[in-house]
Design a protein around this nucleic acid. Structure first.
Lengths: 209, 209
DNA sequence: GTAAGTTTGTGAAACATTTCACAATAGTTG
DNA sequence: CAACTATTGTGAAATGTTTCACAAACTTAC
């Protein structure tokens, strides 16, 4: 399998498709047609068919897609072959919320190391994760062969944390700090600035009326 | 001003431009050229110029844009004319994190009412917001002329909460619950599923190497 | 006051993504 | 087993977004 030119949007939708498919009771329904999956996920049906085409999954005319094998095919494409560790830096409100929320949701992904600078937190187990001082981060990420990091530290330390992560081998960063991280272009950075998205929705809530 | 056809991406970038501009010390620097703003925000300079063109802001050749008037112009475009209230439903980890994080960040936006079903929380002031029972939500949203809602309740109640919000007059929803909300198409819904974005970044962290 | 050096604003090109529309195909019915 | 129905897979069209490239315009320096 030599995929590479798959767009971010397609990846997002594939993840969404799987999430919806997993909520369907396999006793009750074995197959699904593109139109129904489209309805459940809020996309158009040709889009669904195209996305599945991209991962080389084929359905059957007049019967649609086999749910369980489709889930498996998406997993083949999206999931790590072995369990993948994630490092999280910044055990404040947002960090804690993410740790708590994510714990156990995806079998192949695990927030396996968390970091902070608060002596109160260090060496304690918080929400099921042992918290280390951020000075140890590079070593621990390297030792754990971790390739993804989540940044939930304050804005002024985000860049430095990102640089440490990247130096230690991280290639994908999910950034909640309200700063534009500068980084090599082969590093995937996803920004989830909360203030920004609130402003955006506030704007559009006034446009529609 | 009769803008309407302005894309989501452009709105996001305008908000980003403003945030970056606000971090510049007005004593030190009065003007900025598209190239520099582009560098600070991680977009290309023609994109910056196009975005500013969309809101009808003009710079000066050879000197670029006047920072303070640009901030003001973006504000004209993006901000509510008067302070806009926001309702938040679901005072769990994520809800609390958002309330705490957002408090006081934007002068024209305020999380003015929060809702839950836990008797422990109701009628108490949490993070500076009075918490009400979700049964009162519709009345309070209506009375407060609130048009934006944030949903941080568990997946199984998200749809029902959304419907109540919409019935009460909400036209923009920021949804953190891992479900596709069904809604009239004139309602702006922004999904911020945490599990989904973690899976996405994990995927791309493995593609780049 | 004019020539040189930047930068803006924007039409047009390039690129990306979505949607259409329909041939091919599998299932179902009488 | 043939006719009918419904669905997939996918070229091609449509739409949306970004980038190029350059004329027009302002500033500065001499």
């Amino acid at each position: 399998m030599e995929h590479h030119l798959i767009s971010e949007k397609t990846v997002e939708r594939l993840i969404l498709y799987r999430r919806i498919l997993l909520t369907i009771d396999p006793e009750k329904q074995k197959n699904i047609v593109s139109h129904q999956l489209a309805l459940l996920t809020g996309v158009k049906s040709p889009q669904v068919r195209r996305d599945l085409m991209v991962i080389g999954y084929s359905g059957s005319p007049a019967r649609g897609y086999d749910i369980s094998s489709l889930i498996e095919s998406i997993g083949h494409f999206i999931d790590a072959p072995v369990k993948q560790g994630i490092a999280l830096a910044g055990v404040g409100n947002i960090g804690r919320a993410i740790i708590d929320y994510f714990k156990g949701r995806r079998p192949k992904l695990d927030i396996s190391a968390i970091f902070d600078i608060d002596p109160e937190k260090i060496n304690r187990v918080l929400h099921g994760c042992r918290c280390y001082h951020i000075d140890q981060m590079e070593a621990i990420i390297r030792a754990g062969k971790i390739h993804m990091g989540i940044i939930t530290v304050p804005a002024d330390s985000a860049q430095s944390v990102a640089e440490h992560m990247i130096r230690a081998g991280v290639t994908g960063i999910l950034n909640y700090a309200p700063v534009k991280l500068v980084h090599p272009e082969n590093i995937h950075v996803e920004n989830r600035d909360i203030t920004l998205v609130i402003e955006k929705v506030a704007y559009f809530s006034r446009q529609v009326r």
